[in-house]
Design a protein around this nucleic acid. Structure first.
Lengths: 253, 253
DNA sequence: GCTACTTTGTGCCTGCGTTCACAAATGGCT
DNA sequence: AGCCATTTGTGAACGCAGGCACAAAGTAGC
């Protein structure tokens, strides 16, 4: 959600993933992800579950670093801020990797989640729009969750073209299709001003990019085979504003 | 986009808005928002609908700028990328402001959505963690959706304290509670490294902040009365990675 | 003023996701 | 070896959200 807001601790549950998106926020349409042709790996993992798996992965990695070798669903659930039943159901989408009466082996779980999320291969990322946000993204250098090297940067500003940001030289937006194909970019990040977003999106698609992370407050039009996730800061703030207003309204009146 | 309590969005957020949320989403618990004590304004707007209202608002504002005075649900729906029935249902949460056979008056709709989202008042924002992302957020200057002035910045780095970023001097993290109370901050944005996030969160709460937008990849623990939305870039990328993997798996094998 | 057309508002159905609760399975202990 | 404590995995119930389809309502034209 647009994504997501969790509730408190103890009985905590993560609320937002969002998006849901929600959002994707937002939003938050969550069509089941159906695997059409591979019976052996037949998966129909709900998108909401996929989002949570990523969270579990982070928590598990942290646990592994602290030397934990095994973990119970209840423990992992509270650490991830979700209900333990939900967590077990989410993990069951991966297969049966737990041991009843004991729990899950951390290393195994990490491996399975990484495999399911496709993290065993690196996914090259291109960032379009090297403004404040694009700069920040480019400088993340390797991206938090690792396995997502930023391999291409694009902008229109002539003063930026050729200048390396975070070690990668900036190319012109017009070169998006060519560069993306050459470097095998699989994920495109749009951090341009709104008016340029659709055009950039089209070029990314032309360059063979099938997944797009969109920070521009614009509803992108893409072919069916392209996946778009939206992160809209204004929407997030407005949702919070709604809660502020509701809260004040309830308190005052 | 993954959003923590909250909802997906989703994506986005929606996703996003999440969700959540959804985006984020993304994901995606969506408890109805129930107004307990005001029968007249009795609202129970689903969080997913709130996220979409923010999107409608942006589209409507753009339409208004282009001189449109009235708009039909079908038209607005396609512009916002949703089903027209869903849109009408969302708008019905605001009340009945449409005219059958004609459509909705743009100005009225904008006003009602702003009122419902609590945008008639400004919500002061504080950003904690002036790294790459925090810098970007601070420089947004007034924030995209406007009505969200950044009024306070915080960091631990001695070299940053007192230095103005985007016109606002940076204060020390230790001063969060005091400064937030003094300036009447209503929304806190956490853009610190993961280890500092919970501590910063606690101080924001101590400062009376009731809504938090969290960019740190950490599950925050907060009291019940505090609303948290999470935007997790790594999670967003991993969700996209999942789609890449699924797609390739389906194609290749 | 009546008719035909357009568009809203919403009741109902469907489907998905969350939650509960329990049976099955495993390890440890005696 | 058998029993008990523990924890997983999941069948089933529940609830919310999305989409269809239509009645209500209002406009325009005759």
């Amino acid at each position: 959600m647009a994504v997501q807001r969790g509730r408190r601790n103890g009985s905590a549950v993560a609320r937002n993933l969002r998006t849901p998106d929600a959002d994707n926020a937002p939003t938050a349409e969550m069509p089941a992800v159906t695997d059409g042709d591979d019976p052996a790996r037949a998966r129909a993992i709900p998108e909401a579950a996929v989002a949570r798996l990523a969270v579990y992965l982070r928590v598990l990695s942290a646990m592994a670093e602290q030397g934990a070798t095994t973990v119970a669903s209840e423990e992992l659930a509270t650490a991830a801020g979700v209900n333990s039943a939900k967590l077990r159901k989410d993990l069951s989408y991966l297969g049966s990797y737990g041991t009843r009466g004991v729990g899950y082996e951390v290393a195994v779980l990490v491996g399975q989640i990484e495999r399911t999320l496709g993290l065993t291969r690196k996914h090259k990322v291109a960032v379009a729009g090297i403004g404040n946000l694009g700069h920040a993204l480019a400088n993340y250098g390797g991206f938090p969750g690792r396995g997502f090297p930023v391999d291409a940067l694009f902008d229109v500003d002539p003063d930026l073209i050729g200048v390396p940001v975070g070690g990668i030289p900036v190319s012109h937006l017009d070169d998006i299709p060519q560069v993306c194909r050459e470097r095998g970019i699989s994920i495109g990040v749009i951090a341009t001003p709104p008016p340029a977003a659709q055009s950039v999106c089209d070029r990314l698609v032309a360059g063979g990019v099938q997944c797009i992370l969109n920070f521009a407050p614009v509803v992108l039009q893409v072919p069916d085979h392209v996946e778009v996730r939206k992160v809209d800061l204004a929407v997030e703030l407005q949702i919070l504003s709604f809660y502020v207003a509701r809260r004040n309204g309830m308190v005052v009146r």
